[in-house]
Design a protein around this nucleic acid. Sequence first.
DNA 1: ATGAAAGCGCTAACAT
DNA 2: ATGTTAGCGCTTTCAT
Lengths: 354, 354
Amino acid sequence: MKKSATTIRDVAAAAGVSVATVSKYMNGAQRFSATVEARLKEAVEQLGYRSNPLARSMITGQTRTIGVAILDIRNPHFTNIVKGANRIALQHDYTLLLVDTEESGERERSLIESLAQRVDGMIVSSRMPDDSLQWLVDLDKPVVLFGRSERFPLTSVGTDGYLAAYMLASHLVNMGHQRLAYLGFARSRWNDERIRGITSCLQSSGLSLEVHDAPAPSAAAGERGCSAIMLGPNPPDAVICYNDLIALGFMKEARGLGLRLPQDVSVAGFDNVPYGEYASPALTTMDLQSEKMGELAMTKLIKRLGGMGEPDSEYTNLEPRLIVRESTIRRTASPVQADADSNGSRNPAVNAAS
Amino acid sequence: MKKSATTIRDVAAAAGVSVATVSKYMNGAQRFSATVEARLKEAVEQLGYRSNPLARSMITGQTRTIGVAILDIRNPHFTNIVKGANRIALQHDYTLLLVDTEESGERERSLIESLAQRVDGMIVSSRMPDDSLQWLVDLDKPVVLFGRSERFPLTSVGTDGYLAAYMLASHLVNMGHQRLAYLGFARSRWNDERIRGITSCLQSSGLSLEVHDAPAPSAAAGERGCSAIMLGPNPPDAVICYNDLIALGFMKEARGLGLRLPQDVSVAGFDNVPYGEYASPALTTMDLQSEKMGELAMTKLIKRLGGMGEPDSEYTNLEPRLIVRESTIRRTASPVQADADSNGSRNPAVNAAS
DNA sequence: ATGAAAGCGCTAACAT
DNA sequence: ATGTTAGCGCTTTCAT
């Protein structure tokens, strides 16, 4: 069983039939005389033959593989998307070819271009702004994009980021918060619409938003961002983070700074990643239905692959939902007094060293 | 730009040369006369030609793709492995073909078998016991396995699970714990050695271990397991979980049950997933160096792919490391009275069951 | 330095 | 029901 794999010709010879017959047999394309069928079965088992998918693909023009490009496999949001997409793919006998574009920085485009050649279709999550997506269209492969493209006829799925942000801000305002900060991630495609949603909500209450930026959409970045926001002269009483990861990091650092959560500051994020629930205080977040997004994207893609339909620009919107947990709390009227048990001072600047 | 992609023949025609020349040009195999080179360049750009990797693979027998089979893409442990593996792969111009075997239940084997045909080599994480891995060897593809195989000549990397478990138990014993429970996951390949490690450590202190089993290696399963363990007649004062996910779920549920962590019960896990750090109390865990494992596995595999070396049974052991955080605490002398809140409780989560 | 031709392993007409 | 044959798009001797 060492050297080169057995080919269709070996089987044909062993069974005393032609390669065409073997091919048809392997694909279950038709029935055969009992004799032939038996010999075929025997030969295949004997030789342990499995047809070469590459050769098959060359002819059929199908790889039965779907490319999925995500920004960071360590972000549970994407991981959920992949899980959902994979579930559907499996049902239709497709395999996922995964590319983590963040790992390679600005090679995003070239990675996806080369991915395109090895798959029947792609699901892509991009960091590029909408207007620099022409090349994606030019690939001329069925694609489903996360986040609507205004400019190009790309099938897409997503949740309304403006609305989600508005809802979250609304919740915070209703809870009596007055000084809101946003710890965003400018390089994302969604950052702007989230800012717009929050701002617009705040404006209708005569409030304004203090915008900060994290260097990455990760917990570590959230930690770094915390002190600059919370230890200034006029700290916010609630902060919305670009995503749950940043929020989790922010909360950890805030605790380290001596702040009490959520009494001293309410914190919320986006994505509803699994671990927000297990943090303490459990994280309030906007559920963007990641897993469903993955399923939906894959369903659409597969449908298109089957029907060979035109590229449409159909955009499907999933409903965002607010998940209130423990990290956001009603702001009491007087911001002055906290409670007596330990150090009553809410000024955290004291032990900010570490 | 609609229909079938441009082929090497189109380019040859456009440049007025033979396909062989185009092929050599594309592969940078040699230099050409300035004229030809210029025309080639022109033609390729004009037509937007990219050579078809499938056709190429058929001839060269190489796909430049590496298969990675993991048990669950939602488990950060595996996600870290993939991240590490991907980093190395990228450096060597390989692409990852990912398969999440848990998603498909018992199809693990057939999924991996079909994966094997599309890749140059594989990195696999399996749930099968060591003695039912013969088929993996028979695939006759370069493979790196996570977790040593005693029986087969499979290259592998891992951390010493026995040692890791022993270390963790040791820590707990040193902290004065007496009644230890283990919430394991029996279907894992590593469960037994962890039990052995813990037991063996406890025995040398005259202690015994109460073993429970979770239905899945997930946070949800950890939640379910909690009450059965903690609300019995003789609850443990420390519990070691099969992994961090289970531990995280366990802690959440314990809090919900009204227990105070870590005063009422110390909790620890394995893997050192990123979110243990952001939980509160932060989770004590054994760092198994997931990301490093991924890097190492990929490095080994690629080396083998290059050298076409024999399948060796080299096993590389990574060092486990204990990460003590807040979820394990020293047990005070009297196990009777736990409620004396005299020690400055830094954790206000007493009645957090919102 | 460049080209002709023989396949890689398979499928898809088109015979028989 | 089974076989013949012509490629899929490319690389690779081997000529020239």
